[in-house]
Structure formats: structure tokens, C-alpha cells
Write a protein that binds this DNA or RNA. Structure first.
Length: 671
RNA sequence: GCCGACGUGGCGCAAUCGGUAGCGCACCUGUCUUGUAAACAGGUGGUUAGGGGUUCGAGUCCCCUCGUCGGCUCCA
């Protein structure tokens, strides 16, 4: 046996080691780490490998720990295999789809005659624990295409994957088949008998005994390979971690997250509701939510004035012709409410005497703004022309996707359209991005990333060169911002590419907020023109942009971001006055008057509850400031603060208390 | 739209095999006048989402519609 030299990376002690030729990664690790089994796989020359991988001369080897992102993905993917084995044990007719790791867990898709029930899930969990107890080995084996087809003859979906054999052929399918050779993982019992096998790239943990800290979460249907035209498979989601503690921590995190769900808080804090009588996805704002929304809008208006926007208003319905010109009826009709057919007249025989015409609720504001631009001749001197509107739009979202305030059917965009020359375009976009990020920061949001959506090859208007130029310009500006930029292939609107700001809700779902879209196409369709210095007619470039995205969605994101604990400037009620007894109400009403005079939203709780109960109520309403007054305070002309964290500050002169509160509101700080 | 689960006073929940719809909070009325997260007592409020069916009898079983939740697909 000849010796080979390998380079160990990411471990303490000697970096280079000599080992005999057939030595595996696992054997080397066992020598170094002894009883420590936290290295569950390795990166060999940058590629993830099983511990059973045999080393070659010059290999660079780095342990993959079970608490690293790679390590967790391997644990999750291996757990998915155990799930699949359990499913085929209990449901022998189940056909396998794919089973990749995902954030916090994994899933596996199955074709079964009957959907799984919650009861099935607990049975499967038990079966999985049995498999884990058996300490089956994950054993890798390279196979030829024909061999794989042979072995997986009973698995139609796997056969389809063998045909693709490309990592990007299907979302998630990269874990089954890679760009290189095909491999099968056999699950071997301790007597080396075959328990189960699956087509898989790996790597895996060495044996099922490395697993066990998992929980099956839910079952859902999912289209095979993500296409609506394919059959639906039953998908089982699970979570899996390297330790019992981590699993517990994650489950607790989910419970906490559920508490800050805007739908729950919206109810508890009396912000808004979705009356069944109105219809799905159509919200009403209650007074407290109304305050929040009004404050948001007021501040937004102020910022738009400062940034050179002009304010316009447009109707909610329009004749079909407008959306024919814009292309919406060709490209977006699925998202539009059906038309209202008006003004048709029939004669006595029922023949059409007057055909009438269709009116549509608007799903977007841009065509309206284009008409404002086109209302008279425009000079280059007016550009950039920035038209702003809180425009309410209606979109017929599919019934299954409506989701509280984050995905409604009627919502209001802080929408503006900027008309400028090609020369002005880039500066305008750069300024816009600065404006967006600044405004989001003012609302306390900093945790987001940018996404660049380019042309959907099946759904676009305009020519390739124009799209190419628009996309490149957006990419340049986005890159200059220094934020993470994630590509979103094919995600653009039909009229132009976009940059969007993505943020996550309490449960980790990603939502688009701000969007900046560059559009060379609608100006063309609407025949928009301005007169250039040389007297020629030129076509403006159009930029669509919304900073909140939709006010409703932004309210939801803010509510979840703050878990309902809004900073004073956004809090629906900023101060509650709490008298120690009824006799102190009048004194507090005077204090309230002073606060009200400075624009503070204040209430005095004059109900017949006891003081302690009033404190409890204000605390549950997450009111930033409680001002308490009793005989002691009145004697000194003072009030006593109780803050949301339960701390207090007693005997504060009224004027000082007012100043403290007003300062916090004006500076938009969190308290 | 698709798959699954679910829908009981304003809110959160209970109701055994199909057999009188209950509880807590909120709300209303009284008594109490109290110093930092729930005073006490009494009271009002439900055609069990809506419609149809099975049954002597339906919150409970079946069908349709509406709505909600979790995913998938699709989007601010």
C-alpha cells in the first residue's frame, strides 16, 4: 500500500497528513476527533463527500460539522430518505418523487392513491424512529443509466429524472441526479441486507443512527416538478436538526412567530378585519388600523413632496379600451375581475340595438397616469415628470393564495410613474433606490435584500434589445447599492424588468415590498411623446415604482416586524392616562389636553375598572406610554410613567412628561 | 385554481355513541374608590357560516355554496 498526502483544512493541529491509499475520510476523522462524531461528512477539494469516501493524493479535506449549514442539509436530506423508506414500508404502493433539504427541514413527495392523514404522520414518525434505531448504513454505489433504469423500473418519477440528469432540470431534483455520474444509495442493515434504496447524489450521514431529532410537520399537495400541468403528489414536510435542543428551539421559535402573525395581531389590536360579507381578500381598516395607515400615508406624502413628486388621482374603473392599449387584457386578464357590461340596449325582438361596452376594475394604475401625461403636449423641460397616487387596485387573486394583508384582492399602492429621457434614466433610478432604502429605514426596516426580475420568455411585450438594455441598467444601479442582489429569472412584469425589495414575515415567508420597474414598452403603446430642445418629438422612458408596494402588505410587514409593539410615532394610541381612582380623572384629562395640543394621540381610561386592570389593558394594547396620576402626583403637579417594559418613572413634572413623549414621536424612535 | 384540514355568541374554547348548546374574557347594571398586568355580584347575547338531505331527533352523518388555515401553482 502506498502512502498518499492529504491536506486537512478547518481542523486544529497538523495540516498535512500521510495516510495509506485506501483510507477513508471517516477513518482520518476518527483518528483526529476520537469519540466526537460531529463531523458527519467532508468537503474534499470543495465537493461534499460521504465519510466513506476514499482519499487520493493531494486531496484537500475539510470536515462538515452537523451544526453547519451543509451539515444540517445532509442531516435533513438523510432524514428525508428515512421518511421515504418508512412511507414505502407502510404504503407499499407509494411511488417516490423527490426529497430535498429545505430551509429548517426537508420534504419528500409521494404518489399515493389516498392523501396522508395526520394520523399517518404519527405512524410514519414511529416507523422512522425504528429505522433510525436499526442503524442502517447509507452506502453509495455508482450505476450506469441502464442499470439505474433497471433497478428503478417501478419508480416512474425517478425514471423521468434519470432522463433529465441535470441539476437545473427541476427544482429540487438536483439532490437526486447531478451533472456527473448517477449514484444509488443503499440502506443496509447491520447484517448487510438491503433495507431500501434510492436514486441520489448524496452525500449522506454514515448511518441512520446519526439522525433522530426530527418532526413531521404537515402534509400538502405539490405539483410534480412544479408545473400546474403535472399531476399533484403528496408532499410531507418535516424539520430535522443535529440535536434535541436545536429541534426544541426551532419548534419554540415557530410558536413565537405565530404570535406575531399580523392576522392574529390585527384582530387582537383591533387594527383591521376581513368581513366575510364583503368577500375574500377585501379588508376594512378599523379606527386603530386607520391611524396606523394614515400616519404611514402622511409621512409618505411628505417624503414624496420633498422628492419632487406631483400628486394625481384616478378612477377605479375604466372602459376596456384602455387595458387593450396597455396590453393588460392580453397579458394580465387572469388577474383582473371580470368586466361589467354597460349601456347595451335590446329592441322588442331581443336584437342588439346598441352594443354597449365593458368596464373593468383597474388592476394597475399605470395606464391612467399615461393618460395624464398624454393630456397635453409635453416639453423636455418638464422631465423627469413624477406622478404619484395612492392608487387602489383590484386583482382577482386565486382563492388559494389570498393571505391576510400580505395578499389581498383589493389594495392600495403608493404608486408613481416617472417619465424621463434616456439620459436621465440612470440618475433617476439611482436616486429612486436611495429614496426607497431611506424610506424603509425610516420605518425601522433594515432586514431585506434586492431581487432582479428579468423577462418571462412566455409573457412580454417589446423587443429583445430594449429588454436587454433595461435589465442591464437596473442591474448596474442595484449593484451600486451594495445590497445583496438575487436573480429572479423570468419574474418580470410583461412590460419591463424590475428590481424589488424582498422582506420576510414572521413565519419566514418572503414578500415583495418596494418595486422599481423600467418600461420602454408602455410609452410606445400609448404613443407618449415630448418635444426635445431641437423641436423633434421624442419618446420618454417610463419608470413604475411603489415603495411600500401595497399599504396593506406594508402594514402587515410592519406589524410582524414590531410584533405589534409599534414605535410611538406609529402607535395607534400613544399615551393612556390611568387614574389611581375616579377622583384623578379630571387631572389626567388636563394632562391629555396638553398632550393633544402637541399632536399626541392620548386617551384617559375613565372606565370603572381598577387601576391594575387599566394597566393590564393598556399593556395588552401595547400602548407606548402609560401616565398614572394619584394624590401624590397631583400634590406636586406631576405624573408617573409606566413604560411597555414594565419599568416606571415617578413624580415627573407634567411639562417634562409631555416633552419626553413629543420628542420620541418626532424622532420616530422605538421605546 | 389544485390537495388536505377546518368553521359553535365580539374573542378564545367545551359539548361522550346522533338525544335540553355550555364556560372564560369582552359587553351591560349595581356595589367598592383602590399607587403599577385581572375587585365582587348580577345580567344581555347563539336558527352552531349559509343552503339542501338522511333521521323520531343533527353542532355531530351526507351533498352544495361561502369563508378560514397549511402547502402547491401564480403575484404587490
Amino acid at each position: 500500500m502506498s502512502e498518499v498526502k492529504v491536506l486537512l483544512v478547518g481542523v486544529e493541529g497538523e495540516a498535512e497528513r500521510s495516510v495509506t491509499e485506501t483510507t477513508t475520510v471517516g477513518e482520518v476523522f476518527a483518528e483526529i476527533f476520537g469519540q466526537d462524531r460531529s463531523a458527519i461528512a467532508a468537503r474534499v477539494n470543495g465537493e461534499l463527500r460521504d465519510l466513506s469516501h476514499a482519499l487520493a493524493d493531494g486531496d484537500q479535506v475539510e470536515p462538515v460539522r452537523n451544526d453547519s449549514e451543509d451539515g444540517r442539509a445532509i442531516i435533513r436530506h438523510s432524514t428525508a430518505h428515512v421518511l421515504a423508506q418508512a412511507v414505502q414500508d407502510l404504503f407499499p404502493d407509494a411511488k417516490l418523487g423527490i426529497g430535498p433539504p429545505v430551509e429548517n427541514g426537508f420534504y419528500y413527495d409521494f404518489d399515493v392513491a389516498e392523501p396522508f392523514t395526520p394520523d399517518d404522520l404519527s405512524k410514519l414518525e414511529k416507523k422512522m424512529q425504528q429505522i433510525i434505531k436499526e442503524r442502517q448504513r447509507f452506502s453509495r454505489r455508482v450505476v450506469s443509466d441502464s442499470q439505474a433504469r433497471d433497478e428503478l423500473a417501478g419508480e416512474p418519477y425517478k425514471l423521468e429524472l434519470i432522463g433529465l440528469k441535470s441539476a437545473d432540470a427541476a427544482e429540487g431534483a438536483g439532490v437526486e441526479v447531478g451533472a456527473g455520474e448517477l449514484t444509488v444509495y443503499d440502506n443496509l442493515r447491520r447484517d448487510d441486507s438491503l433495507a431500501w434504496k434510492d436514486l441520489c447524489r448524496g452525500p449522506h450521514v454514515p448511518a441512520t443512527g446519526y439522525l433522530g431529532n426530527f418532526k413531521l410537520m404537515r402534509v400538502a399537495a405539490a405539483y410534480w416538478r412544479g408545473s400546474e400541468n403535472n399531476p399533484q403528489l403528496q408532499r410531507i414536510y418535516g424539520t430535522a436538526w443535529e440535536s434535541k435542543d436545536k429541534l426544541k428551539e426551532y419548534l419554540q421559535h415557530l410558536e413565537e412567530a405565530a404570535k406575531r402573525d399580523h392576522r392574529k395581531l390585527g384582530q387582537e389590536l383591533d387594527l383591521f378585519s376581513f368581513p366575510e360579507e364583503i368577500g375574500s381578500g377585501l379588508a376594512v381598516f378599523h379606527p386603530k388600523g386607520g391611524v396606523l395607515r394614515k400616519v404611514m400615508e402622511d409621512y409618505s406624502r411628505q417624503r414624496h413632496v420633498e422628492d419632487g413628486y406631483e400628486f394625481v388621482y384616478s378612477p377605479h374603473i375604466t372602459k376596456a379600451k384602455l387595458f387593450e392599449v396597455s396590453g393588460h387584457l392580453d397579458w394580465y386578464s387572469d388577474g383582473m375581475y371580470p368586466p361589467m357590461h354597460l349601456d347595451a340596449e335590446l329592441d322588442a325582438e331581443g336584437n342588439v340595438r346598441k352594443p354597449g361596452q365593458d368596464y373593468y376594475l383597474k388592476p394597475m394604475n399605470c395606464p391612467m397616469h399615461n393618460l395624464i401625461f398624454a393630456a397635453r403636449g409635453r416639453s423636455y423641460r418638464e422631465l423627469p415628470l413624477r406622478l404619484f397616487e395612492f392608487g387602489t387596485v383590484y386583482r382577482l387573486e386565486k382563492s388559494g393564495v389570498v393571505h391576510g394583508m400580505t395578499r389581498a384582492r383589493g389594495f392600495t399602492q403608493d404608486d408613481a410613474h416617472i417619465y424621463c429621457t434616456r439620459d436621465q434614466m440612470k440618475d433617476e433610478l439611482r436616486d429612486l433606490l436611495t429614496f426607497v432604502l431611506g424610506l424603509l429605514a425610516d420605518y425601522g426596516l433594515t432586514d431585506f435584500y434586492l431581487e432582479l426580475s428579468d423577462k418571462n420568455p412566455d409573457k412580454f411585450v417589446g423587443d429583445d434589445d430594449t429588454w436587454e438594455e433595461a435589465t442591464r441598467t437596473l442591474a448596474e444601479v442595484a449593484e451600486e447599492s451594495g445590497l445583496d442582489l438575487v436573480p429572479d429569472p423570468g419574474g418580470a412584469a410583461f412590460y419591463g424588468p424590475k428590481i424589488s425589495v424582498q422582506t420576510k414575515d414572521a413565519i419566514g415567508r418572503t414578500w415583495q415590498m418596494s418595486t422599481i420597474q423600467l418600461d420602454f414598452n408602455l410609452p410606445e403603446r400609448f404613443g407618449l411623446e415630448y418635444t426635445a430642445p431641437d423641436g423633434s418629438r421624442q419618446r420618454p422612458v417610463m419608470i413604475h415604482r411603489a415603495l411600500f408596494g401595497s399599504i396593506e402588505r406594508f402594514v402587515a410587514v410592519l406589524t410582524e416586524h414590531y410584533a405589534g409593539v409599534f414605535p410611538p410615532w406609529l402607535a395607534p394610541v400613544q399615551v393612556v392616562g390611568i387614574p389611581v381612582t375616579d377622583g384623578h380623572v379630571e387631572y389626567l384629562q388636563d394632562v391629555a389636553k396638553k398632550l393633544g395640543a402637541r399632536g399626541v394621540r392620548v386617551e384617559v381610561d375613565a372606565s370603572d375598572d381598577r387601576m391594575q386592570k387599566k394597566i393590564r389593558n393598556a399593556q395588552k394594547a401595547k400602548v407606548p406610554y402609560m401616565l398614572i396620576a394619584g394624590d401624590e402626583d397631583i400634590a406636586g403637579g406631576n405624573v408617573s410613567f409606566r413604560y411597555r417594559d414594565g419599568s416606571q418613572k415617578n413624580g415627573v413634572p407634567i411639562a417634562d412628561a409631555v416633552d419626553e413623549i413629543v420628542a420620541a414621536v418626532e424622532q420616530r424612535v422605538q421605546v
